[in-house]
């Protein structure tokens, strides 16, 4: 599986990745000490608040300067830096494996795995907990929790061993099942083409409604929004197997492009309305541009 081979992440690329870190819009409670702000006050140097002294408090945290000025014992509270739970869910449905026969660019699935690997590395580097999932009509594979950079090879191994029985896409079942299994909230990154015949709203809402910090990586192939085939065609859906005969003329193709554009705009609007991040990834885009520029521009990394 060369698409997620560690050869692609050369040392220069990794060193550039190490200058980045995942960014979340919300503050979550962590399990272990790490490098990320949490809701708890703790032992870091970052000032959080003051409160009155109560018996049993650690006298080392009394602010004697305040006592000298106002004569009251005040406890100086600092933020507790904890880890973040980062879940990366990669759509492995048949549509993600589809690509035009004459195209030499990666499939949506291959590109999604590479992006997932890069984001996983970022999380590991930030001492966050990382877990990865595959899904199509349901959850297909779970990587388990990883922490620390040495676990990167385990992530790569998991991504390389993706399930090879692609089926359709059912976002609602898959993401709701994932949401229910998570006891801790955190950052949820979903890489999918969102081509669910039942619609994407309920599936994404299963995460956003459970207070995950959702970020959608919407992956599409250029041939999907700009088809070039013309004439009388018998189109076959690679997921459902359904067929549709069309006469692809300029008018019809124009209507098709408008339809795809409306679909993308709808996704973007939905994410914005539900305070979820949205990144549109084209399979003909440069991988470095996606990770180092697009994600930074759209607030996924900083």
């Amino acid at each position: 599986m060369p698409a997620v081979s560690s050869d692609l992440f050369d040392s220069a690329f990794l060193s550039r990745l190490e200058r980045l870190r995942l960014q979340v819009r919300r503050v979550f409670a962590g399990a272990r000490r790490a490098e990320r702000r949490s809701r708890r006050t703790g032992s870091s140097l970052e000032f959080a608040d003051y409160r009155d002294y109560a018996p049993g408090d650690d006298p080392r945290r009394i602010d004697w300067n305040i006592y000298g000025r106002i004569g009251r014992l005040m406890m100086k509270l600092t933020e507790e830096e904890e880890d973040l739970r980062v879940a990366i869910l990669v759509d492995c449905s048949a549509s993600m494996h589809w690509r035009p026969a004459d195209a030499n660019r990666p499939s949506k699935f291959d590109l999604s795995r590479k992006v997932a690997a890069a984001l996983g590395y970022l999380a590991l580097h930030g001492m966050d907990h990382v877990e990865m999932w595959f899904f199509d009509t349901t959850l297909r594979g779970e990587s388990g929790l990883f922490r620390g950079r040495p676990a990167f090879h385990q992530i790569l191994r998991f991504l390389r061993n993706a399930p090879d029985s692609p089926g359709g896409t059912r976002l609602e079942d898959s993401l709701e099942r994932f949401g229910k299994r998570q006891r801790r909230r955190g950052l949820a990154i979903v890489a999918s083409d969102c081509l669910d015949p039942a619609g994407y709203e309920r599936g994404l809402l299963a995460l956003a409604g459970r207070h995950f910090d959702l970020h959608l990586l919407h992956v599409m192939d250029p041939a999907e929004w700009e088809p070039t085939e013309r004439g009388d065609l018998l189109l076959r859906d690679c997921e459902g197997g359904g067929e549709l005969a069309v006469t692809a003329g300029p008018g019809l193709l124009r209507a098709y492009r408008d339809e795809v554009r409306r679909f993308r705009e709808g996704l973007r609007t939905w994410c914005s309305r539900h305070q979820a991040g949205y990144s549109f990834i084209s399979t003909d885009a440069e991988f470095d541009d996606i990770v180092l520029r697009m994600f930074r521009r759209e607030g996924l990394v900083q």
């Binding site: 589809w98 997921e239 339809e259």
Partner: peptide
Amino acid sequence: LERRSVSTLLFW
């Protein structure tokens, strides 16, 4: 008709 495989028929 010429057969073509597509990722989805949703838009069509």
